[in-house]
Each structure stands twice: as structure tokens, then as C-alpha cells.
Amino acid sequence: MTEYEQTLLARAAARQDRLIRDCLVLYAGANLPSPAAQGAYSAALSAYPAMGPSFAKEQPDTDLVSELEEAVRRQICDLLGAGWAEPRLPSCTYANLAVFHALTRPGDLFFGPAAQHGGHLSQRRGGTPDVVGLRVTDLPYDRERLCLDGHAAARMIERDRPAMVLLGRSIMLKPDDLAPVVAAARQAGAITVFDASHVLGLIMGGTYPNPLAAGVDVLTSSTYKTFPGRPHSIVAGRDPAHGALLAGVIDRQLLANNDTGRLPSLLVSLCEAKEEIGDYARAISRGTRRLATALRAEGLTVRVAEPDETPTHQLLVPLPPSVPQAGAIRIFAEDGILLGTCADPAVPGGHALRIGTQFITRHKTGDTPDWDEIARRLAQTFGKLSR
């Protein structure tokens, strides 16, 4: 091993302490599992594949993997009020791909969020839906209220009768009104899917309405944002028939092997969520509100949920048109602040800083984050962008 490679390994080993102690992590898609969840990873479970359904796998000595799969499924169903759950896929992009394969056919009409409104590559035109051969139409968005235009979406569904409607985005400042969309989709025979990657922990914690309880058919999610686990995915739903179709695609066509050593870690994170996720979700929403207030006091424009609405972990600060996104990220990183940028859904062609409160809320060094000091640091660096 070269000295350079040894240096890389040392830096990797020190990264967690650096993120918690030396950086202000305000990236909206970041988190770390607990020490117990990190320690539960089992490399021995991934020593060889465990292909196929639980307790009917092709390899020997896989009953423990099957038991873990079933235990994780039970916890997911418990936390989300779901009728079935699928924990085997490595990320939500793969989960969305599998759901598209299982529940649609090439050429079907698909409604999903536009990139300008926060549509992720696994949800939008030109991304994963295209891989499956779906015809993609953008869902309407309310630029003034910064959320899905549920009534306009319902009218589109009634008129065009898509096969699938995907809800949820990478920019989610507050809950969408899902009721008119769910009702129209049910009338039109469309399957509804909610990508909860950014708000899974808030759903489990009760500060974001549960889409499954609202009648959405399938929920997909990653597990490392407001839900503080290792990178993975979950899929859950109401109708076991949908779960059976998804499992068939996974078993026959998609998953020859996966890192089953992650299952114990996911199980620990889910069990911890039963005890802690409510307090955590409420602290995230409080932090978002306090940070928004503090940033406005520093003179910055902030896009966040209205005072009578419950905020998520996200708030946006519009960027000057002359500032490139990559340049903004770099300047903040040089000051020890890790955050991202995104399209500004309120301004066509505009961009914004996307700030998340979930990491610092969980990994704060004191009793509570000092949101006024965080806002001061953000404003100080923001002032450098136009220089």
C-alpha cells in the first residue's frame, strides 16, 4: 500500500469526527446512523448471495438473512401503518425503478415532478421513468405557495388518465395537499406513489402527514436524510398485491445479490425510530423555523413554510443570478459550511441554496443548536458570493 493510499484511508476513518466537530453540515440530504446502528453492520451476512424470497433462497445458510428481512418488514409496517414492505433494494433510485417495472408497462402515461420544482432524476422527465419507457408529463406546481398544485393535478389526472402518479420531490418545504390527487387517481385507475426520501423521518415522527394513511398506494424512500440510517431504501404499500408484483420483479429480474450485512443496521435504526423519531421530527421542524427567522434577521430572503404550516427540514435562500451553483457550494465549503443548491421553484430559471436542519439537529455539540450563530455564519459567507 502506498503512502498516498494510507493517507486516503486515514482521512476516511476520520471523516465522521470531522463532519460532527469541524463542519457545519446543512446539506439537506445528509445524516449518520447511531453508533449502535453503525456497529450492527455484519460483513459475514454478505459473504455470499441470498437470492430469492425470504425462506426460499437459492443459497445455503440464509435463514438468518430471511429472518432479518422479515423483522425489518414488520418494523417498517408498524412505523408506517403499511400492509407490506420491501427492504432489499440499495437506494431509492433503484426502488423507484423497481416499482416502475412492477406496476407499469412501457408506453404508459406517467405524471411526476418537474426538475424546476425539485423532481429528482429517479422521478422526472429524462430520468429513471424514461428507462422504463414511460411517457412523462410534469405535475403542476404552485409557485406562490411552493407546493404541489393538488387541484390542478387532479384535473389533469381526470382528463388524461395516467397509469401512475409519482408524488414527493427533492425540494419539499411543507406538506402537499394529496387528497384531491389521490381521489382523482383512484377514480382514473392510476397507481399513486409517494417518494418520501426527504421526509421519511418526519412522516414516522408525525410532523408530516403519512401518505399511506392519505390513500397513496406505494411509498418509496431512502434512509439517510430525516430518517437517520445507513444509505439504503425501503418500499411500503397498502395493497399486498402490489408488494407481490414488486417482489416478483426483484426476485426474477433485478436483484442477484445485495449487501445483506446492512439489514441488522437498518433494523437497529428502525427500532430506535420507534423510541426517538417523534422528538427528533419535532426538533427538526422547530430548528427550521428558528433558522429561517434568524436568517431573515440577517437580511436574507428565505423560502420556508408559512407560519401556520409545519416546516420540513428544508429552507431555501435564493442565489443572485450571477452566482454559479458550483461556485456557491465551494465558497461555503471553504468556510466549513456544507450545503447544496437547487432550482428555485418560485422563479423560473432561478437557483437557491438548499439548507437542511436534520443533521445539525441530530449531531449538535450542545443541548440545542445555536441557530442565531448559524445564521450569522451563513449570512457572512453569503456576503462573499457577489464579490
Rank of each mutant, 00 (worst) to 15 (best):
M1E: 03
E3D: 14
A10F: 08
R11I: 05
R11H: 13
A12E: 14
A13S: 11
A14L: 11
A14P: 10
D17L: 14
R18Y: 15
R21V: 03
C23E: 15
S34Y: 12
A40E: 10
Y41G: 00
Y48T: 02
K57R: 15
E58V: 04
V72M: 08
C77Q: 11
L80N: 01
Y94G: 09
N96A: 08
L97C: 07
H101P: 02
A102W: 13
G107W: 11
D108G: 04
L109A: 10
G119R: 04
L121E: 12
Q123T: 02
G127M: 03
P129H: 01
P129Q: 01
R135M: 07
T137G: 03
D142C: 11
D142K: 04
L146H: 11
G150W: 06
A152I: 03
A154T: 04
D160F: 11
L166D: 04
M172A: 04
M172Q: 14
D176H: 06
V181D: 05
A183P: 02
A183H: 09
V199N: 11
L202A: 08
I203Y: 06
M204R: 05
P209Q: 03
G215C: 02
D217Q: 03
V218F: 10
S221Y: 12
H232L: 12
V235C: 13
D239I: 01
A241N: 09
G243L: 07
A247S: 14
A247Q: 14
I250S: 02
D251F: 03
A256P: 15
L263M: 07
L263D: 10
L263Y: 12
L266N: 05
S269V: 06
E275T: 13
I277G: 05
A281E: 08
A283D: 14
R289G: 04
R289Q: 10
T293W: 11
V302W: 10
P307E: 08
D308I: 00
P311M: 06
P320D: 06
P321Q: 01
Q325L: 05
Q325P: 05
I329D: 13
E334V: 01
E334D: 14
I337M: 13
C342S: 14
C342H: 05
A343M: 02
P345T: 00
G349W: 05
I355N: 10
T365C: 11
D367F: 12
E373A: 15
T381A: 14
F382Q: 05
F382L: 06
K384D: 09
K384N: 08
K384I: 01
